[in-house]
Design a protein around this nucleic acid. Structure first.
Length: 732
DNA sequence: TCAATCCGTATC
DNA sequence: ATACGGATTGAC
């Protein structure tokens, strides 16, 4: 049967009107964002709204539509009177739920984040809106569009016929009557000179943006809760993001003290689908206006947001690992900028990114009274050469430096707990050939080996493919002997236990969970970021393996090391109460000096200056393109770069982080790779990385060019295999 | 001359 | 991705 079509544009035929649908009488067109991963389809498409769906198909709801012949999910962005699409419109297949889960603010935020990271809106929405859970939706209040009870958020009424109906802002659910009389708010001015001005800005909803340097020993969860309470008292919501679950538990407790149990909610991805959606809905419906969470919560649709805050923005947990890899600090900056609202970037240390915000005047420093720093700081000493000299690396890390031993003994003698910070959990995590010191690698996949059992060194296992290696032989020199290159927390605990018999030893890492620290002599061996808080502070902290941390061939090694050290040292009592910190690193190093002088600002300034010098983020905008040779060449060819952009590379990306197929067995000539026009020296399938850098002023042009290139490639079905990352963390 | 197949392109 | 229009091919 041939449809009686005259000239009509290419595309799928409209469905033979199933069930005879009629357009809604008012605003019959829904502008829909379809959930497809293709870069060139990253824009709204118009659909007709059937009269039956008129009430439910409000802006922000999830829908199903027929798109290129198949059913796909999407969000209604707006209802409009007519479409500017010249072809036939299809109908919305159905409204999945009347719950408007996507607010205007979050939609605009997601768009801005996608553009900032050269990604697609659909990708960001996947991060921003949690999957629906139908049962949870029914349990709570009914959706506003069905039988809305009084007081639930209701989208703007029927409205005019021709007016575009924007997604309504979420009105707060509480009434003025039930808000408590706000107590006199603390404004931090006794410890932080700029505190009063910042709190004033929160109360007045002005766009103050502050980089807060917390004092050593500071009860930061309590301070953050005070900022949230100030926003609450001003009748607005607040959004506070922390790196991990332990930080969140502390913040949750502090918020409960500051605001009671019913005004805030915590939000993390690991709550499970039902609870996560339940809390998301409570936020969306305005039942909770103070929100604390981990990185996924940065997109939470908080009603009338009056403050955004992030704690410890250097923690890499705040960088989303899924495309387009947004960082919480940037997401909250975009939110703060869009709303012209206050923002707080908090931490003991300071990132180069935060320093740039200060340099550019976008944010103001909220630092402590300098004399107070001296009063609150523990005594910090470095012990570099004395235990490094002459010792093999393994021995250096298994022996406590004398100064560290003394500090621990004196603290324990005074009845105080001691914190020992070691780089990684596990028992001898990495091994190397004893002869030539090359990393021990798996015979099958060339992955790094680790020791799996505590007693024997003969049980080696590949960290990538899991293959057990019973008879190791070094691929380079043939030696059969191995040695440890890193000693993890477990082994350190054993050795310290032998040094202090009778003292309880507690392990704390991501894997073991965090023990409660007694208010008495105990040794806590912890990995960075997993240090438990001691009730009255630690008597001493030993920061081991500093050389290892600082020696990493990483752009951020110095910044990251100082952040970890300060995170641990901040848990130690002040010097006048006997608090000591011993760091195992050369005292001449600038990072060590910054710890000794407790000067995160100076370190960040130097760090940023170095990045300017080298032309690395955040002093420049940088994009990394990863892909196969063919994809890379095509992409670089299409890329319409801004005038001052510069391409570095591409270079092979075989630094050992990805499970590569055995390089030696790969045919090096290969007619296939010649056909593809690739460098015959590279094995087919080798991934390359190119870096593109541009002045900050050209960031928008750079990301737009990258999006256009991705769109062009996706429209021409030139497969994936290409990944774009803005300001990649691992630049080298 | 018509159907089968390939190609390019839009997807509402 | 798919699903379409239009061009191309090839058997009658």
């Amino acid at each position: 049967m041939t449809a009686s079509s005259a000239r009509r544009p290419a595309g799928p035929r409209p469905r033979p009107s199933a069930g005879a649908r009629t357009p809604a009488s008012s605003l019959p067109v829904a502008r829909v964002l379809v959930e497809v991963p293709l870069a060139h389809l990253d824009r709204p498409f118009d659909y007709l709204v059937d009269a039956r769906d008129d009430a439910a198909a409000q802006p922000g709801v999830r829908v199903k539509v027929r798109f290129a012949g198949r059913q796909v999910g999407g969000f209604v962005l707006a209802r409009v009177a007519e479409s500017d699409h010249t072809g036939q419109l299809g109908y919305l297949e159905r409204v999945v739920s009347p719950e408007p889960v996507l607010t205007t603010e979050v939609f605009e935020l997601a768009r801005a984040v996608a553009d900032r990271y050269a990604g697609t809106l659909a990708d960001v929405l996947r991060l921003a809106v949690p999957p629906r859970h139908a049962r949870v939706e029914k349990q709570g209040k009914a959706g506003p569009a069905t039988d809305a009870p009084v007081g639930t958020p209701v989208p703007a009424g029927p409205g005019g016929d021709d007016a575009e109906r924007p997604v309504p802002p979420v009105p707060p659910d509480w009434s003025d009557a039930e808000r408590p009389v706000p107590p006199v708010p603390p404004d931090w001015s006794d410890a932080y000179p700029a505190g009063a001005a910042f709190f004033k800005a929160i109360r007045e909803g002005r766009p103050a943006r502050a980089v807060w340097q917390a004092l050593p020993g500071e009860d930061w969860p309590a301070r953050l809760a005070e900022t949230a309470a100030a926003a609450w008292a001003a009748g607005r919501g607040a959004l506070l993001i922390v790196p991990d679950a332990t930080d969140l538990a502390r913040l949750d407790a502090a918020l409960t003290i500051a605001l009671g149990p019913d005004r805030h909610v915590t939000l993390t991805a690991d709550l499970g689908p039902a609870e996560r959606y339940r809390r998301f809905l409570a936020i969306r419906r305005g039942e909770r206006t103070i929100v604390a969470g981990t990185r996924a919560a940065a997109f939470a649709p908080v009603a009338d947001l009056g403050l955004v805050a992030v704690f410890d923005d250097g923690d890499d947990l705040l960088a989303e690992p899924r495309a387009p890899y947004p960082h919480v600090r940037e997401v909250l900056m975009l939110r703060s900028a869009a709303r012209s609202g206050p923002m707080l970037i908090a931490g003991f240390a300071r990132t180069a990114e935060a320093q740039l915000l200060l340099d550019s005047g976008w944010a103001q420093a909220l630092g402590p009274h300098r004399p107070l720093v001296r009063a609150r700081c523990p005594w910090v000493r470095a012990t570099g050469s004395e235990h490094v000299a002459g010792a093999t690396s393994a021995a250096a890390h298994t022996r406590l430096p004398p100064a560290a031993f003394e500090a621990a003994r004196s603290a324990l003698g005074r009845g105080a707990p001691v914190l020992v910070q070691v780089p990684r959990a596990g028992y001898v995590p990495a091994v190397a050939c004893e002869q030539c010191r090359r990393p021990a690698r798996c015979r099958r996949c060339r992955g790094p080996l680790r020791v799996t059992a505590a007693q024997t060194s003969s049980l080696l296992q590949c960290r990538w493919c899991g293959t057990n290696e019973a008879y190791f032989r070094c691929g380079a020199c043939g030696s059969a002997r191995i040695r440890a290159t890193t000693i993890g927390a477990g082994r350190t605990a054993e050795e310290i236990g032998r040094a202090f018999p009778g003292v309880p030893i507690l392990n704390s890492s991501g894997a073991t969970g965090r023990p409660d620290v007694p208010d008495g002599p105990a040794i806590v061996v912890a990995t960075p970021g997993a240090e438990p808080v001691a009730p009255t502070g630690y008597g001493a902290a030993l920061l081991l393996d500093g050389r290892l941390l600082l020696g990493r061939p990483d752009l951020r090694a110095g910044e990251e090391t100082l952040r970890r050290w300060m995170g641990a040292a901040a848990l130690v009592r002040p010097q006048r109460s006997g608090g000591q910190v011993v760091v195992a690193a050369e005292s001449a190093l600038s990072t060590v000096q910054a710890l000794i002088r407790w000067d995160p600002a100076g370190h960040a300034e130097a760090e940023l200056a170095a990045r300017r010098e080298l032309g690395f983020p955040p002093a420049v905008a940088m994009a990394a393109i990863d892909g196969t040779q063919v994809a890379m060449m095509d992409a670089l060819d299409r890329l319409h770069l801004p005038p001052d952009a510069e391409v570095l590379g591409p270079v092979p990306l075989d630094d050992g982080e990805q499970p590569v197929t055995d390089l030696e067995d790969e045919p090096l000539d290969g007619a296939g790779s010649m056909l593809l026009g690739s460098d015959p020296g590279l094995p087919a399938g080798t991934r390359l990385r190119a870096l593109i850098r541009a002045p900050l002023a050209q960031r928008k042009a750079l990301t737009a060019a990258l999006q256009a290139t991705a769109a062009g490639r996706s429209a021409r079905k030139l497969g994936g295999g290409l990944r774009v990352t803005m300001d990649p963390a691992e630049v080298i």
